[in-house]
Amino acid sequence: MKIKLFSYNVVDTPIHRLSGVTKLGSFLFLSFAVMFSYDIRVVLAIMLFSLGVFKVSKIKFSQVKAMLIYVLIFLVTNALITFLFEPEYGVKIYGTRHEIIHLVGRYRLTWEQLFYQNTKIFKYVAVIPFGIVFLLTTNPSEFGASLNSIGVNYKVAYAVTLTLRYFPDVQRDYHNISQAQQARGLEMSKKSSLFKRFKNALIIIIPLIFSAIDRVESISNAMDLRGFGKGKKRSWYNKGKMTLQDYTALTISILILITTILISVFVNKSRFFNPFI
């Protein structure tokens, strides 16, 4: 069977050994640092750090290939829409104009607009590895415990945990149903047209939905029989303990965030780095 997508990646790495609270906190601190700053120097530094973390986590490309394709489509679409609606936004931000070429009408390609949009793209590229690492290296139960530790109601935290645990089950059911349908003559290979494969995929989705409903009902009945939700609090079996590695990771994340804010406030005097002055 193919490698499961969007599921917990069981590997012994320094990233996996961190507690769920640490990974959640670090992800939030680093994501805020990337989103706060439009200094391309800071963004590139954090991007290299995020790619290093991604490499250490030993996540296989096959696990995130589909996600990266969607991200690439999103980045291209976002860049085109930004230019179509605000072709002069970079000029407004940096206060200068260095025109490259006049395309048509009000659309003029400038170095300021290119610099702004490239900075935005690098910001996304910097934060996406953190999200992937957090999602694929955190045990779903430990993630629920982490959410509950920062004040999220345990019912909501448990619902998120069940959702993450459900991804591998849905993938397995889809694979099994697909194999059964292909054995009956349903064409799903690359030999058929894209439209035909899409239509046949819809045929598979129908039994998949019924299978999902049955599983949800079974889980709901089991939780009701065990009195889930009766108490105001609950304990977590997989709640990780904080170690020196956890405190070190959190400290590094906080220092990166603080450094980003200080550079924006005292060096650039703004969230934007302006190379055109």
Rank of each mutant, 00 (worst) to 15 (best):
A183W: 00
L147M: 05
K239M: 15
V91W: 07
F228W: 13
L136G: 02
F49Q: 12
R271C: 10
T259H: 05
L68I: 06
Y116H: 07
M67G: 09
F29M: 04
Y237V: 12
I46C: 09
Y154K: 13
A145H: 07
A79D: 03
I205K: 08
R197E: 06
L72Q: 14
M47W: 12
R172S: 10
K233I: 06
I150M: 00
S218P: 08
H98N: 04
H102L: 05
F130D: 02
K239Y: 14
V127Q: 13
F54L: 14
N118W: 08
M47R: 14
S149V: 07
I213H: 03
G231F: 15
T243L: 09
F276Q: 03
F49G: 08
F85N: 08
S235H: 15
A212T: 10
F130C: 01
L80P: 00
F115E: 01
S50A: 02
Y124L: 09
N200F: 12
T110R: 07
K191W: 09
Q171W: 10
F36H: 12
F115C: 02
S270V: 09
R41F: 05
M1L: 06
A126T: 06
M35I: 07
K58V: 04
T243H: 00
D214F: 03
R41E: 06
P275W: 09
E112N: 03
A212R: 05
I69S: 12
Y247T: 05
P87S: 05
L208A: 07
V267L: 12
F36L: 14
L147S: 01
P275L: 06
S149Y: 11
I81Y: 00
E217A: 07
H98F: 00
G240F: 10
L30C: 00
V133K: 00
T251S: 08
P129L: 08
R271M: 09
L30R: 01
L162R: 06
K196A: 02
P275C: 05
G151D: 11
K232L: 13
L225M: 14
V21P: 03
V71R: 15
I252S: 07
K241L: 15
Y70K: 13
G52A: 02
K199R: 14
L194Y: 11
M223L: 15
F167R: 01
L75C: 12
L68D: 13
N148D: 15
L202N: 12
L225C: 14
P129D: 15
T96H: 00
F143R: 02
K4N: 00
E99Q: 09
R234C: 06
